[in-house]
Lab assay of single mutants.
Amino acid sequence: DLSALRVEEVQNVINAMQKILECPICLELIKEPVSTKCDHIFCKFCMLKLLNQKKGPSQCPLCKNDITKRSLQESTRFSQLVEELLKIICAFQLDTGLEYANSYNFAKKENNSPEHLKDEVSIIQSMGYRNRAKRLLQSEPENPSLQETSLSVQLSNLGTVRTLRTKQRIQPQRTSVYIELGSDSSEDTVNKATYCSVGDQELLQITPQGTRDEISLDSAKKAACEFSETDVTNTEHHQPSNNDLNTTEKRAAERHPEKYQGSSVSNLHVEPCGTNTHASSLQHENSSLLLTKDRMNVEKAEF
């Protein structure tokens, strides 16, 4: 173990290094160091905050020279020094078990990766560091076993998940096959086929009936047209017969005018059967003409 005197000496050296690497504005270890034209180094955030307070150039807090945003430059070497100082402080805390008085939040800088452990060898070769390295080497064999167990647990979990997924996939297939086998029997399929065939026959029977009705309507229309044509021909046949009657009536009127007047009046009210309204109107006109002729003949006879 380190003596108290040596611990104090190391602590004083760390404090001196820390004062050199402090920012003059925030009085902390410089984060993202930036250098000016006057070779003074500050935190990048502190300098941008200072420049944004005034429009135009501002003055350096140490030498009062003008500073602009374009004049600022990043210093990589200074950032490396800060990183190495942080590593020294971490090693000091691990070796002594004491917390550094002016320690900052170094938890963000710590890294437990194997590459980081290899890099620590180049920091300080001390008894405390050696003991700590031995402890780490002793704890390393235990870690692979834990990793193997965790991997086995994960693989077993994956296997159970896969088996569950396969079961879920197989179950719908089985149910679907069961439904297909038990849903419709052979008799049901035959009945469905016969039902479809009967429906098709009914459709075939319905369509000819409609065509037959249309044919019957067409035949009825044709018969009505033929009947009207026969009526017209009958009226045409009746007209010459009426003319013959008129000639006979004229002759009778010349011989017996008194008797014919009474008979002509009675004939006005008689309509021949089986004739249309057109034929009756023609008869009325003929009878009126005959009456006028008879009157003329009677007057001539009187004179």
Rank of each mutant, 00 (worst) to 15 (best):
K55N: 13
E229Q: 10
L21H: 04
L5P: 11
F78T: 15
S126T: 14
V161Y: 15
N143P: 14
S145D: 14
E249I: 03
C26G: 00
K250A: 01
E9T: 02
L289F: 12
R77I: 14
N276V: 04
R77E: 13
N267I: 03
Q283N: 05
R132F: 13
L217I: 09
A220F: 03
L146K: 06
Q147I: 11
K55D: 10
L158T: 04
I124V: 07
E302D: 14
T247D: 03
Q53L: 13
G56E: 11
K37R: 05
N157E: 14
F106W: 02
R132G: 06
Q53P: 01
K44V: 01
Q168H: 10
D213A: 12
L48E: 08
C26N: 00
V7L: 07
R295E: 08
P272V: 11
S79E: 15
I206A: 07
E32L: 02
K44D: 02
L164P: 10
Y260F: 04
S280Y: 11
R130P: 15
T68R: 02
C90K: 12
C43I: 00
S228V: 09
Q80I: 06
E249C: 04
E271G: 04
K118L: 12
E9C: 00
K293T: 12
L48Q: 12
P172L: 04
C26I: 00
F45Q: 15
R135V: 04
S266E: 14
K31G: 04
E110K: 06
S79K: 07
M296G: 05
D218H: 05
I20D: 14
S264W: 13
H284L: 11
Q239F: 06
N191S: 03
E74L: 03
S126W: 05
Q239P: 06
K44I: 00
E83M: 05
T189I: 07
K250R: 09
E99N: 09
L151F: 06
N65I: 08
S58K: 07
I67A: 02
S266N: 12
P272G: 14
Y129N: 08
V161H: 09
P141R: 11
S152H: 03
K221G: 10
L217R: 01
K55V: 08
E226T: 09
L21A: 08
N267K: 06
L155Q: 08
A193H: 12
R295P: 03
S79T: 14
L27Q: 02
A4Y: 12
I88L: 13
T230A: 12
L204F: 12
T166R: 10
Q18W: 13
L282I: 11
Q73A: 05
L29F: 08
R212I: 09
L94P: 00
L94Q: 04
Q154M: 09
R295K: 15
K259P: 01
V82M: 00
I30W: 09
L137I: 12
L290Q: 15
G262Y: 01
R70K: 05
K87V: 11
I123Q: 09
P257G: 11
E187K: 03
K259M: 07
R135F: 04
C196L: 15
K221R: 04
G199C: 12
S58G: 13
F45I: 13
R135D: 07
L282F: 15
S126F: 09
R255K: 11
E202Y: 02
L164Q: 15
D231Y: 01
K221L: 02
I206S: 15
E226K: 04
I20T: 09
I89L: 03
P272K: 11
Y104I: 04
E8V: 09
T160R: 02
Y260H: 11
S35V: 15
F227Q: 05
T233H: 15
E84S: 11
K37D: 14
S185Y: 07
S219A: 04
C63K: 00
C23F: 01
L217Y: 15
S264C: 12
C63E: 02
E99L: 08
D294R: 04
A133D: 09
R6P: 04
N243S: 09
K118G: 13
R130G: 05
N12R: 03
I89S: 04
I123P: 10
K49R: 07
T76R: 03
Q154D: 14
S176P: 14
M17W: 01
N191G: 04
K250V: 12
K19V: 01
R255Y: 10
Q73F: 10
H237Y: 12
S280T: 14
V153K: 07
N65A: 11
L50Y: 15
R6W: 01
F92H: 00
L21D: 00
C63D: 01
L98F: 06
Q209E: 15
N105I: 14
A16G: 06
Q138T: 11
G56Y: 01
F92T: 00
S186L: 03
A223G: 06
L2K: 12
I89Y: 00
L50A: 04
C196Y: 02
L81Y: 07
D218K: 09
N234S: 06
E8N: 07
T36N: 00
E28Y: 01
C43A: 00
S139N: 13
L98R: 10
K293Q: 05
L268S: 15
R212K: 07
V7P: 00
K37L: 11
K64V: 01
N267T: 04
N111S: 05
L2N: 08
Q93M: 02
I20P: 00
L217K: 14
S145N: 15
L146E: 09
D184N: 06
E148K: 13
Q80V: 13
I124F: 07
S228W: 05
L51W: 01
T277I: 08
I25Y: 00
Q205T: 07
Q239L: 04
L155M: 15
H238R: 15
V82E: 00
H269K: 06
I88V: 06
T292I: 14
T163E: 14
R174K: 14
E271N: 13
Q80K: 09
F227E: 11
L62S: 03
S241H: 05
C90I: 04
V298L: 06
L204R: 15
G274I: 03
Q205I: 01
A224R: 05
L94G: 01
S263C: 08
E148D: 11
V298A: 06
K134R: 15
K55Q: 03
T68S: 08
F106Q: 12
G199F: 02
S122R: 03
N105S: 05
A4I: 04
N191V: 03
T235S: 12
R165K: 06
V7R: 01
H269F: 13
N297M: 05
A107D: 02
T160G: 11
V270Y: 03
Q205L: 04
C90R: 10
P144F: 07
R132Y: 07
K108Q: 01
K55Y: 06
E28M: 03
E229K: 09
S281I: 03
P144G: 11
E9A: 09
C26S: 00
A91D: 02
L151H: 07
R212Q: 08
I25G: 00
K134S: 09
A107L: 09
E299K: 09
Y100R: 07
V7I: 10
I20Q: 00
L245F: 11
T248M: 07
K108H: 15
Y129C: 03
R165W: 07
N157G: 07
N52C: 14
A220Y: 15
V190A: 10
S216I: 12
P141L: 08
G128F: 04
G159D: 07
H40A: 01
N243V: 05
P257Y: 09
E258L: 11
L282G: 02
R295Y: 09
K31C: 06
N15S: 13
R130C: 13
Q283G: 06
I67C: 01
E142H: 09
T230S: 01
G274C: 12
D244G: 05
S219D: 12
L81V: 06
S35M: 13
L164N: 00
